[in-house]
Design a protein around this nucleic acid. Structure first.
Lengths: 95, 95
DNA sequence: GCAATAATTAGAAACTTGTCTAATTATCTA
DNA sequence: TAGATAATTAGACAAGTTTCTAATTATTGC
């Protein structure tokens, strides 16, 4: 898990919105773009950042490229955060 | 919980290292700074970002300013992440 | 093969961030 | 009150980010 890439990716509101759109299931780049008032070039840049953080996965379907969430990384990140503070007992840190 | 401020704060490696140092308990600005090869002015800037995100709390103790983690925000953030993806059942989303 | 559509890459402009030095504020102690 | 120490604020600058337009790549269907 590349912490730096993940946090950097999550730091932008547009990228978080993209991730949110993907909660409902896989979407093509174009479908995701419909929700944003931004060029497809800028979108592509955001996709690249998200991919580098391994937060999304891609698959080409003919002319289209389909994006989907990589839930595993979210879980890892959440766990990491739970373990990152001196929390009450039972909040995460194992053994 | 100000998502934007929190993610922005977490996106910098120095700030994450500061938070990590604070896991062991409260420290003064100076004590935190010992671990970093960076001016106290830059450190102060990072503290300000962390405070704005409510990730740390401060308290003046005489000449010193003591920093401590605000665990609540970490927990909230972790929970938010758990709920942010279409996870397997039981991973967080209530009801 | 060619035109149309989907998406990315390249290069540039505007904005933001992290860092520095210098100056300032707050507190302690003699 | 003056000097010393802890920390922050102000202002400047280099590096990184987000966005754009224009050009390029990949695929479909005639």
């Amino acid at each position: 898990m590349k912490q730096q890439a993940i946090f950097k990716a999550m730091a932008d509101p547009t990228r978080r919105a993209i991730l949110k759109r993907l909660q409902g299931g896989s979407l093509t780049a174009g479908e995701i773009g419909e929700a944003f008032d931004i060029t497809s070039a800028s979108l592509s840049h955001h996709f690249a950042v998200l991919k580098q953080a391994d937060l999304v996965r891609t698959e080409r379907r003919g002319q289209f490229i389909v994006y989907s969430l990589n839930s595993t990384v979210f879980e890892d990140l959440a766990r990491m955060l739970f373990d990152m503070f001196p929390g009450k007992p039972g909040s995460g840190a194992k053994s």
